[in-house]
Amino acid sequence: MITTIFRAAALFAFAVALTACGETATSDRTVRKTDSPAYQGAANPFVADGWKPGDASSWEQQMRTRAQGQNEYSRTTGG
């Protein structure tokens, strides 16, 4: 009876070890690369206000505004 339990546990451990060998690394996946700059963007109704697709200066201004909104020092009220 003990040998049966031992064999079942060994078989289970062997099966788990084999499944771990079948995993692929995430670095093996290919990433789609775009040739266009980020400010080109998509012309759809879901873009942020004040940003015009294709305009690099409005893109940079939008990124500055967005970063400033995430700045904890500017969000606190002097207290």
Rank of each mutant, 00 (worst) to 15 (best):
79 G>N: 13
40 Q>V: 10
12 F>T: 13
28 D>K: 08
73 Y>V: 15
7 R>K: 14
54 G>Q: 02
14 F>W: 03
49 D>K: 05
13 A>D: 03
55 D>V: 06
3 T>F: 04
20 A>I: 10
17 A>G: 15
60 E>I: 08
5 I>R: 15
13 A>N: 09
38 A>R: 05
64 R>T: 13
18 L>P: 02
2 I>V: 09
11 L>Q: 01
51 W>T: 02
49 D>N: 01
62 Q>A: 12
72 E>G: 06
74 S>E: 09
56 A>F: 08
36 S>E: 09
55 D>G: 07
59 W>E: 01
18 L>D: 09
66 R>S: 14
39 Y>L: 03
2 I>Y: 06
26 T>I: 13
21 C>P: 00
41 G>W: 01
34 T>M: 02
26 T>E: 13
38 A>Y: 03
70 Q>I: 04
6 F>M: 12
77 T>C: 00
43 A>R: 09
60 E>L: 11
76 T>Q: 12
74 S>Q: 11
21 C>N: 05
64 R>Q: 14
49 D>R: 01
78 G>Y: 13
13 A>H: 03
72 E>N: 10
48 A>W: 05
75 R>G: 07
41 G>N: 07
72 E>Y: 12
35 D>Q: 05
31 V>I: 09
59 W>Y: 15
52 K>V: 14
66 R>Y: 14
17 A>C: 12
37 P>F: 03
46 F>M: 04
25 A>I: 02
58 S>A: 15
28 D>I: 02
40 Q>K: 08
5 I>A: 15
14 F>L: 13
30 T>Y: 00
40 Q>Y: 03
30 T>N: 01
56 A>Y: 09
61 Q>A: 15
78 G>A: 14
72 E>V: 14
26 T>S: 14
6 F>I: 15
72 E>Q: 13
